[in-house]
């Protein structure tokens, strides 16, 4: 936690401070464009009516939930292999944001499910996988909060994040397999080849807006985390300004 540790974060604070307003503006513009296209360009579904518009929130949120985990997995590698001080900060800042996007994806999926399936929750493969991902996010956050020493907590969660990254495809595969076993008909297919441009473009713009939102929030959370750590270092220094130095005396 000494000088070497703060050198990099200092540069990061300066850089991110300058970058953040521009990122915020870009995010706001992308949201304005995306929401306009969602409401006025994209057509209503001939069966579902206006409820199909939930998709423009649901799908980007689900993408972001996955992307956020990838950011955390890369950060975990950075913590464990390169021992970069910012990697741990990045992973820690990303976890609550990822959990929030996952939660948003679950909520919107459930609200969309009500008119489509007649119930708020269906053990659909997609929703179930997202639910498992949500539990993993909460587990990671819980681990961060229970281990007191932040450095040790960062390393422990990095290990868990990587194990999760290895396991996520296995979980996804097994949940899909389980789902086909129990309810053969697939309910929604968004990834079909014939997605109409009037739906595709608003979706892509919204995805861009969500991605920008993620980077804005992530950068803000990282800045907070760096400040929080500096504060902790200062408090520790104030609590005990005691550093031992020692020299061996000559053997008698």
């Amino acid at each position: 936690m000494a000088i070497a540790d703060l050198a990099n974060p200092t540069r990061f604070m300066a850089l991110s401070g300058r970058l953040l307003p521009w990122l915020g503006i870009a995010c706001a513009l992308a949201f304005a464009a995306g929401l306009y296209m969602t409401f006025f360009v994209a057509p209503d579904d001939y069966q579902q009516g206006a409820t199909v518009k939930i998709m423009f929130l649901h799908v980007p949120a689900a993408w972001l939930a996955m992307m956020c985990y990838s950011v955390m997995a890369v950060s975990a590698l950075g913590t464990l292999i390169w021992k970069h001080p910012l990697a741990d900060v990045s992973a820690r800042a990303a976890a609550p944001i990822g959990a929030a996007f996952t939660f948003l994806s679950l909520i919107t999926g459930s609200l969309w499910g009500k008119p489509m399936w007649g119930t708020y929750w269906v053990w659909d493969a997609r929703l179930t996988s997202v639910l498992v991902l949500f539990i993993m996010y909460l587990g990671l956050i819980a681990l961060w909060r229970t281990v007191e020493d932040p450095i040790r907590a960062g390393k422990a969660t990095a290990v868990l994040t990587l194990v999760g990254a290895i396991n996520l495809p296995i979980i996804k595969f097994s949940v899909d397999w389980w789902n086909t076993l129990h309810q053969p008909a697939s309910v929604v297919r968004l990834d079909g080849p014939a997605i109409h441009p009037t739906i595709l473009w608003p979706l892509l713009v919204m995805a861009l807006a969500f991605t920008l939102l993620f980077f804005t929030l992530h950068m803000m959370a990282m800045r907070n985390e760096v400040l929080r750590r500096r504060l902790r270092t200062l408090q520790l220094g104030a609590a005990s300004a005691r550093t031992a130095t020692a020299r061996p005396q000559a053997a008698e």
């Binding site: 539990i135 819980a142 290990v159 194990v163 097994s174």
Partner: peptide, 30 residues
Amino acid sequence: IGAALTVSLRRGGLLLAVLVIPFSIPVLIF
């Protein structure tokens, strides 16, 4: 893995289960 991650925690038993249950879903399914 969960036991190793929670090795230093006084009351790690429940947290261990929370951390590990997502990874044990495939085993349960198959």
